[in-house]
Amino acid sequence: MALMRITSPHAHGPMSTTRVMQNVLLALIPGVIVLTHFFGFGTLVNIIWGCALAVAFETLALLLRGRPPLFYLKDLSAIVTATLLCIALPPYSPWWLIAVGIASAILIAKHFYGGLGYNPFNPAMVGYVVLLISFPLQMTAWSPPRGAGEVPGLIEALQALFVPASFDGITMATPLDILRQNNSLLIKDLWQQTPQFGRWGGMGWEWANIAFLAGGVWLLYQRIFTWHAPVAMLVSLGLMASLFYDGGSSASGGSPLFHWLSGATMLGAFFIVTDPVTSAVSLRGRLIYGALIGVLVYLIRVWGNYPDAVAFAVLIMNFAAPFIDYYTQPTSYGHSSEEGK
């Protein structure tokens, strides 16, 4: 009988990085289906093109660093980054826009810092912010949702990717944009006069957000992340919105329900804010981290210049996360809090 000495740990969780990333991708499916239903095949085409580019850039970076590409590609993190970024991009974006975004996300935000696990900023959000600041025109060109305008088919979606300016003039302001620029109509009248608003949020947007919420709750049930950061973010966003709702006047920032179900709120709350690498680590830290993201999202959405704020808020709080961690270190068992410092 061979007496084998096996060192600890003897038990390990079944969750490898690959499994986590697979689950995240699965949880994104309902949201992508809803987006495709309302906005056409643009999002899907974005995702496929973006994933191909992400694999290419990841391979390039790994080869340059002398690492085995296949081993690192198998963890699917590049695919998740590309998918998240491409969902956030307007459908029917040109190919180069996606290429620039993916290059910034994979090369600058991830591999300059040493790859997965070391990146202090969320790569998908870095890609998004680089694009939003460099190409504001293309980044705000959202096509109208089904019900408010015509939705292009698959062939047109492919054309839009490679033929420049094949679909000018069919873009519409997003509901968040309309609300931000409104200063004459009461909320109730604005809702009646503008076709882009749905029952609670923007038309199409509300269902996409509900689908991402469903995916996020499933991930929570799978224990991919803890509830602290997303709940803190949604609660603080809701609190800010109720504080400044102003009874639905023309200066109102919109109701809490509108903010929860508009733009990238749910995608951000469950898929971006919960990134284990770039968020705060301790549970108390995650509460602070999430809550401040909610506040910043509201501030930038309502009073800032940009159409949506999740990316900016997340990056700013990524920057603050190490500092939050420094002051919210849990004390180790058996020590008092003064001793632990």
């Binding site: 600058i108 935000a109 900023f121 870095v126 912010v129 680089v130 600041i133 501030l299 930038i300 009073w303 800032g304 210049n305 940009y306 704020a309 990316a311 900016f312 808020a313 990056l315 700013i316 990524n318 920057f319």
Partner: peptide, 13 residues
């Protein structure tokens, strides 16, 4: 540089 990008989000406040 990345931080500077993020702080551009405050523009217009």
């Amino acid at each position: 540089g990345l931080m500077s990008l993020a702080f551009m989000g405050f523009a217009g406040l």
